[in-house]
Design a protein around this nucleic acid. Sequence first.
DNA 1: CGGCTACTTGACTGTGGTCAATTGGTGTGG
DNA 2: CCACACCAATTGACCACAGTCAAGTAGCCG
Lengths: 246, 246
Amino acid sequence: VKVYFFVMPQNTSTSEAFTTPRLLERCPMFAHLTDEDRVRVAAVARVRTYARGETIIRDAEPVDRFFVVLDGDVKIYKLSPQGKEQILHWVRPFQSFAEAAVFSGGAYPASATALHETRLLEIPRAAFLDIVRADGEFALRVMASMAKWLRRLVDLVEDLSFSEIPARLARRVAKLAADQGVELNDGAAIDLPMSKTDLARMLGTVSETLSRVFSKLSEDGILDVDGRRLTIRDAAKLRGLFESGG
Amino acid sequence: VKVYFFVMPQNTSTSEAFTTPRLLERCPMFAHLTDEDRVRVAAVARVRTYARGETIIRDAEPVDRFFVVLDGDVKIYKLSPQGKEQILHWVRPFQSFAEAAVFSGGAYPASATALHETRLLEIPRAAFLDIVRADGEFALRVMASMAKWLRRLVDLVEDLSFSEIPARLARRVAKLAADQGVELNDGAAIDLPMSKTDLARMLGTVSETLSRVFSKLSEDGILDVDGRRLTIRDAAKLRGLFESGG
DNA sequence: CGGCTACTTGACTGTGGTCAATTGGTGTGG
DNA sequence: CCACACCAATTGACCACAGTCAAGTAGCCG
């Protein structure tokens, strides 16, 4: 095992040369590779740490690399000329982003920022395309990831076009419950993994409006809100807000 | 040439056995294939004609095939439970749709309807996946197509989140001008390739609102509207509506 | 303790959606 | 060939959702 100390790529630190192939194992996109291949990928890739709030890529910048989140969280968002922010997706560990951008070249279509201290695996454009060409299975997994992005964006369009804010919030709360492995029943507790301001930006609204909607839900006995902790009071009513067309 | 009469696949008519490989040549996705390969693809594919207004796939239906438009037009859209329609994209000849859905399986994420009499090439899910696996170049082209879909959806989200209806309309008019090879100058004439009701549904609004916006633009001397023919009166003002944040 | 940020609440306004009535163009059947 | 039906488009009246601006509170870190 100690041989890694000597063949280790220059742009990663000692501990990362050990851990990166291990981490790749946990990424759906690289899970099919042999250990040998993973070491090879880790060699062309670079691991970089971003501070909380640091910008990773900016909308319209030329595309030069592709990303996998190793730990931490990244938000992908668009900024309007007036400074309004629409969050497209919260990227969690072992998910990737910018594959489509790297693939079609040109400019990144959105911006990305680290939300906490975050480590990313970064693969240069040319190397990424080489792997795609060389490894059919990898190509299929990249396609699977792009297909997921498409679903998410269609869902977002659906939300923006059809639903009012209370329905969007209710749907989001249900999703969060599912992510946290909590059944959406009366009494269930859910922790917001983000500030309410950012939650508002995911829903396509502003914090003032979200605040009002939360107090309305509270008044109506649907939801209790205490800081970032939500407690479901009436799951049926909550569901009613988004099922069959909020 | 006449040999085609005898090796022709059973599910296509005589003329289609001739024309399908020719048409495939014009699809970016199949342009790289040899003539031989194209005949092979045409053999597993089926050509089907849809009448104006006929539904091709319905949101949430199980995925069983992938489509390429040969001639005609197809709209891809979501329907809200209340019956509001949001058009995601107008698919034109030699473009494809549902590749991501076929790829990730499950259910179609949106509906598709033929706008005029339309001929589609339909490739069953299993055959499509076989071609992707067998032909790396084809896989790359499918990825290119998915990347385009992603861009379009991000653009749509941007429009829905940031722009008011006049700005969305102005941007659309500019796009139509570009598509029709017309410079967006004073006096330029653009023909709407769709009804105003459908245009409204692409912009995420309703025909009444679109009608009002058109008459406002007309009043302001920006645009003349005569049926489906638009004449630009003041291109600078039109651009001003969407550049630097409408 | 001071300053920063996140959040809340109030008052106001505007965009744009709904409902309803009317017009005009088009294709169908008597 | 005309009458009718149907659909696209327009216009008016109304109003509600939600965004903006402003003020104030609570919580957190240095």
